[in-house]
Design a protein around this nucleic acid. Sequence first.
DNA 1: TTCATTCTGTCAAGGTTTTGTATAGATAAT
DNA 2: ATTATCTATACAAAACCTTGACAGAATGAA
Lengths: 308, 308
Amino acid sequence: MSEEPLYNIGVVTRVTGIPITTLHAWERRYGFPRAARSAGGHRLYSDRDIARLRWVKTRVDAGMAVSRAVAAAQSLETDGIAFPASMPEAVLPSGQGQPAASPLDALHQALIQHDLPGADRLMGEMLAFHSPEDLTVEVISPALARLGEAWEKGEISIATEHLASNYLRHRLLMWMVTGPNPNRPDPIILACAPGEWHEGSLLMLGVLLRRRGYPVAYLGQDVPFHSLAEISRAIQSPAILLVAMRAETAAALADWTRWIPQVGGKPLVVFGGRAFTVNPALQQTVPGHYLGDSILQGVERLEALLGK
Amino acid sequence: MSEEPLYNIGVVTRVTGIPITTLHAWERRYGFPRAARSAGGHRLYSDRDIARLRWVKTRVDAGMAVSRAVAAAQSLETDGIAFPASMPEAVLPSGQGQPAASPLDALHQALIQHDLPGADRLMGEMLAFHSPEDLTVEVISPALARLGEAWEKGEISIATEHLASNYLRHRLLMWMVTGPNPNRPDPIILACAPGEWHEGSLLMLGVLLRRRGYPVAYLGQDVPFHSLAEISRAIQSPAILLVAMRAETAAALADWTRWIPQVGGKPLVVFGGRAFTVNPALQQTVPGHYLGDSILQGVERLEALLGK
DNA sequence: TTCATTCTGTCAAGGTTTTGTATAGATAAT
DNA sequence: ATTATCTATACAAAACCTTGACAGAATGAA
């Protein structure tokens, strides 16, 4: 992690997502980060500056005031606590020049060949450059989908599919359990529809929510409504998230209003899952908010609904 | 636990669930917590303030008057008693919850009251003194059993059981994935019998084996024999471990010799599970080695068999 | 029981602080 | 020459502050 002044402000904007004008304002108002200057007076940021900015931005996104986040960052640094290094991956021309298979292909190959240590190694390499949430969306999700397809086509056996998808699910579970400290007091309840045994998407939603600071109460497969209702009374949940992969379980979902008590629109009940993507007409049959056709979209819609 | 004034009131609201207006009122009426101020007069709370607020909120949620809870908090602090970072509500005489006699009781109480943060704290405390393998045998296993009993007696709903057993399973999965580096080349295959969906014991066996340095290929629930056979051909496994919880799935196990090829007694096929403990006569119906009536016994027998 | 009192969460009004973004004119980099 | 970046100022939205008030719940006395 170097202090070497390398990046002009445009790069930093693209890498961190913080607008140029905001970077100007932060340096003017808080002296943070104190970027070096070129001979002509242009700002030059170091790798460490980018790490600092990322750290502050995650705090600010979580609701902390900028001035306080900056103060916290500086007090941490004077205590000698370094920031977690993360690669400015957008800067690297990664992927280009290498006609080699994508990491996703490599992972798929390792898994269907039952090479779990190889898969471990690949995951380790990817984690060095990408966050668990990125990997969830970009790697785990497509890998699970591809495994399902390979099984349907008869290319792999069901045990191979079990081994591989268990492997991927274990990663997801770890990320869901070991996320950053939750930002909010009450957990979002995640459950599969009654009769639904496919929990992959639910796990991914759990990981993404947990990584964004929401605590989650993970109920998993096949949760009957009557006991879901009981839990939702017992814990003050802001939202209940239900998924269904098949048409039958999606149909079962339509019934939730008979079980789960609603007081002034709370708790929020949202639903999603492949059943609704494949057959959009089903979306109208279930009360509540539809999460959209992708995991990422689902998390964003839920966050928007909760924000109100 | 720092007194550094870091958090604006919005963060505190999200983290504690206490509305802004209520925070205003508490400070106005009780001088609690006495938040620091920014240059412009905005409140700034510290980590310790948040701990104080959480402590008070749990009392208030349990029915104590705010004024009394605040007074109690302040008298505690003037007595020099530091604040617990999180609230040991399982220990409180709230509702029917009884004082916990053992860590196992405490964990059980926390889980059936849906207090996942409390369960986390308990697990953390236990991990400070015991290894994951000890906890697996001494705590997780009985906790899972007790949850099952509580559900059968109707003391807890199925969703509570789901939430709690998922919580315990997630711990097991983490320990199974993050063990020390395996010191043998080929993994032991772990699978539930065809039709068997209860994987708790299998997970515990996986943890114990992994902790003893055996690599593990975890197939999980409901693995049909034909594909199990295919995997066992694909990877050079020293042993295949099968479990069945119910009599029907145990009966299905008897069939494995028709599918899994044996060359000179290899791979070793072993079996276990509650079905065989409840009805020992079933042990004779399945070829191969019976693992015994407990998890620990199972691991030891398997290790003895492999040692030869 | 009934009634008065206290406790407590929430709201409204009107003002201040904090922060992101826009603009203009000038200079640097390529 | 064109694009990128600089400083400085301005402005508006969001977040927050204080004061005062009010309604429902809890409490206690009659």
